[in-house]
Nucleic acid binder design. Sequence first.
DNA 1: GTTAGTTAGTTACTTTATGTAAGTTAGTAT
DNA 2: ATACTAACTTACATAAAGTAACTAACTAAC
Lengths: 102, 102
Amino acid sequence: MDKSICPRFEKAMGFLSQRWTGMIIYQLLSGPQRFCTIESSVGVSGRVLSERLKVLENEGIVKRDVYPETPVRIEYSLTDKGLALEPLMKDIEKWSQNWLDA
Amino acid sequence: MDKSICPRFEKAMGFLSQRWTGMIIYQLLSGPQRFCTIESSVGVSGRVLSERLKVLENEGIVKRDVYPETPVRIEYSLTDKGLALEPLMKDIEKWSQNWLDA
DNA sequence: GTTAGTTAGTTACTTTATGTAAGTTAGTAT
DNA sequence: ATACTAACTTACATAAAGTAACTAACTAAC
């Protein structure tokens, strides 16, 4: 192994390329959302969504807010660190529109 | 499931978020390379590298050239479609430098 | 001509990640 | 007490990835 690649880049790529992580972040770009909304709009299973949100929260990319209503409302949203991924998401959008057929 | 997300975006995200795919493309941005070079610099196993290169070739993102030397030299490189992913890779680079610690 | 060396894979098998569906917790409301 | 809801979690099955050994095709050395 050569491993001449920047470790920060590798780390970023490491979790961005976990299945569903990108879609979850993309979905949250449209605003704070609750668990079940992300689950159904992205099409990810609750088991994995729960796992991913924990990682993203630990990384400081996603924030979790609890509103003690009835029933409880828990909203997930992007932090500044998460919002900083927007240009990247836009690039994927652009690329897909330019190079993939509908 | 809502699935209001653009299907082209989903497709792009679908294979960009396969493990190793991003790293392979990033590595190929530095020029045409042979199988064993990608394998060692990226740190991906031959089994998976072989699988990914096939997908990327089918998608028209990577090109495979055979030079019948001794021993045979086979070089993988990015097509225009693949090179068009450069801005995206640069965004990941920038983000990782701004938001991750070394 | 047989043994060895090289790159580019593939195969068989193990470990890890994800999908699926049922269950749990907490807080009302009936 | 029973039922309803959101947000998870757990147990179990399937799919993807890691590992190491193996094959193919070619050449070179002995």
